[in-house]
């Protein structure tokens, strides 16, 4: 697992209070990990903070799975 993937998953575990095993690449934040719309806003903020990048709102809306987040951050960095 890449460094980015590891850090993304760690943030998801901490913010959503879910078991690490559930945070797979395909896991959907809302449908699979129990997040609500405000949780996803906070998650995106946490990614921005961790990776020092800016995720525009129109991109953030499309980040619905763990893999979406990893891919965006890897492309951006």
């Amino acid at each position: 697992m890449s460094d980015v993937a590891e850090r993304v998953k760690k943030i998801v575990v901490e913010h959503l209070g879910v078991d690490e095993a559930k945070v797979t690449d395909d896991a959907k934040f809302i449908d699979d990990l129990g997040a609500d719309s405000l949780d996803t806003v906070e998650l995106v903020m946490a990614f921005e903070e961790e990776f020092g990048c800016e995720i525009p709102d129109d991109v953030a809306e499309k980040i619905t799975t763990v893999k979406d987040a990893i891919d965006f951050i890897q492309d951006a960095s």
Partner: peptide, 10 residues
């Protein structure tokens, strides 16, 4: 303002 939590108000 971008750093303010979405949970700030509630």
């Amino acid at each position: 303002p971008r750093r303010l939590s979405p949970f700030f108000i509630p």
